[in-house]
């Protein structure tokens, strides 16, 4: 805590275990997980279903408690970080309140934390502009497409300009086209806000395109099997990326690396494998 502000990592996870249930029904969701996300860094979690990605994210968000180990957010305990509202969060389901308008949903955190009406109004306009939904401020969530709902949820997560964003498969329910557009928008938003992001996904290209580093996990027990530094593969940092990064050689190299880690096979020769997807 003696380190100057900005030098603390956004997230630091040390030796974390999470065990659900007891006795014969016991499930080790996470075992001995160590992970650091630097301030402003974009880190993705990828791995097969049930390997504990959501569990790890929920631990960081203090929505669940670790069985053992230490979790810190900007150097504070996770509970304190939650009470201080140090992070914004977006879930796999948009989780909008159906009885509130789009504007009402976006301003929810501001309202809960006592921001003035004028300040809320200005901020909501700004955020809706950011996610391209200004025309839908007065609509209700049931009048929006799934992709639009997800964008509202992202705007809500950004409402208080958090320095850390936690996102659990936010684009999971979207079609490929909307998905790529949302990825581009997310890169732009992160560049504008400079936030650190912990991002859960099932898609290798998505993880590689968005991230500075991709953390690969394996199930039963959930643990980290490897970390791919996308920047080391020749891509620019996540904040400076453009759509064109998807066609660069470094992108395919990183995709191949993540894939071989996921399948637990040694790195294949690049040329053949890399162009598959």
């Amino acid at each position: 805590m003696s380190t100057p502000a900005g030098m603390e990592p956004a997230i630091s996870v040390t030796g974390v275990d999470r065990v659900f249930g007891k006795g014969r029904k016991q499930v080790v969701a996470l075992q001995d997980v160590d992970l650091t996300v630097a301030d402003g860094e974009f880190v993705s979690l990828i791995g097969p279903s049930g390997c504990g990605k959501s569990t790890l994210l929920r631990l960081v968000a203090d929505l669940d408690t670790a069985t053992s180990g230490d979790l810190r957010v900007f150097g504070k305990g996770v509970r304190q970080a939650r009470l201080d509202q140090d992070y914004g969060i977006a879930f796999q389901q948009a989780g909008l309140l159906p009885w509130r308008t789009v504007a009402g949903n976006v301003e929810l955190p501001l309202r809960l934390h006592g921001a003035s009406a004028a300040m809320r109004k200005a901020r909501v306009a700004e955020l809706l502009d950011l996610v391209g939904l200004s025309d839908f401020a007065k609509s209700h969530p049931d009048q929006l497409s799934g992709g639009m709902q997800q964008r509202v949820a992202i705007a809500r997560a950004l409402a208080e300009s958090p320095r850390l964003l936690l996102m659990d498969e936010p684009f999971g329910a979207l079609d490929e086209i909307t998905r790529e557009r949302m990825q581009n928008e997310l890169v732009r938003i992160c560049a504008e806000t400079g936030a650190a992001v912990l991002f859960v996904t099932h898609s290798i290209p998505e993880a590689v395109f968005l991230s500075d580093r991709v953390v690969v996990m394996s199930p039963r027990p959930g643990r980290i099997t490897g970390i791919v530094d996308v920047r080391a593969d020749g891509l620019v940092g996540a904040h400076d990326r453009t759509e064109r990064a998807r066609d660069e050689e470094g992108f395919f190299r990183a995709v191949a690396e993540v894939r071989s880690l996921l399948h637990g096979t040694p790195m294949p020769t690049l040329a053949a494998e890399g162009l598959e997807k």
């Binding site: 939650r82 509202q85 969060i89 389901q93 934390h113």
Partner: peptide
């Protein structure tokens, strides 16, 4: 009340 909404409220320290 949906679990997401409950989580959301916890996350916002409501």
């Amino acid at each position: 009340v949906r679990a997401v909404h409950r989580d959301l409220m916890t996350a916002y320290a409501a």
